[in-house]
Amino acid sequence: MSSADRVDLSQHARTLVRQALDRSSAPVVLIDGPSGAGKSTFADSVVASWPDTTVRLVRMDDLYPGWDGLDAASAAVHDELLGPMRVTGIGRWRRWDWTASQPAEWHEVAAGSPLVVEGCGCLSRRAAPLADLRVWLTADDGVRKRRALARDAGGFDAHWDGWERQWQRFVRREWPRLLADLVIDTTTTS
Rank of each mutant, 00 (worst) to 15 (best):
L115M: 06
L63T: 06
A128E: 00
R144N: 03
W136Q: 06
G33H: 07
F170T: 12
G154P: 07
D44G: 14
W98E: 00
P51N: 10
D140M: 08
R95G: 06
R14F: 02
L82T: 10
D44W: 07
E118R: 12
S25A: 14
R6H: 13
Y64V: 04
R169H: 14
L9Q: 14
A26M: 07
V116T: 06
V29Y: 01
R144C: 05
R144Y: 02
A180E: 00
T88K: 05
E118K: 13
L149V: 10
E164D: 14
W160A: 13
A180Y: 04
V183R: 09
G69W: 09
V116K: 09
A128K: 07
W50I: 10
R169P: 01
D161P: 06
H12E: 05
R23K: 14
D22M: 08
D8Y: 13
W160H: 11
S113D: 02
D68R: 15
S190H: 13
L9C: 06
D61H: 10
G36M: 05
F156N: 06
W136T: 07
A37N: 03
D22H: 09
L178V: 10
A150K: 12
L149F: 02
Y64L: 05
W96K: 11
G91K: 14
S49A: 15
H159N: 12
T99L: 14
W98C: 03
T187D: 01
R56F: 01
F156G: 06
Q11N: 11
W50C: 08
M85V: 02
W98M: 05
M60R: 07
F156Q: 09
E118P: 10
R95M: 11
V17M: 02
R144I: 08
V46Q: 05
W93I: 02
R14C: 02
T88Y: 00
S3K: 11
Q166R: 09
M1C: 06
A73L: 04
G154W: 03
R18P: 00
V117L: 08
V135K: 10
H107P: 00
V58C: 02
S35C: 14
V143L: 10
H107T: 15
D181I: 11
A72H: 14
S2I: 01
P129W: 09
G142T: 14
V7G: 05
R125M: 10
D22I: 01
A104E: 06
V29N: 01
T41C: 04
V171S: 10
A148H: 01
D61N: 11
R151Q: 00
H107V: 15
M85W: 04
L130G: 08
R125K: 15
G83H: 14
L178E: 15
Q168G: 03
S113Y: 02
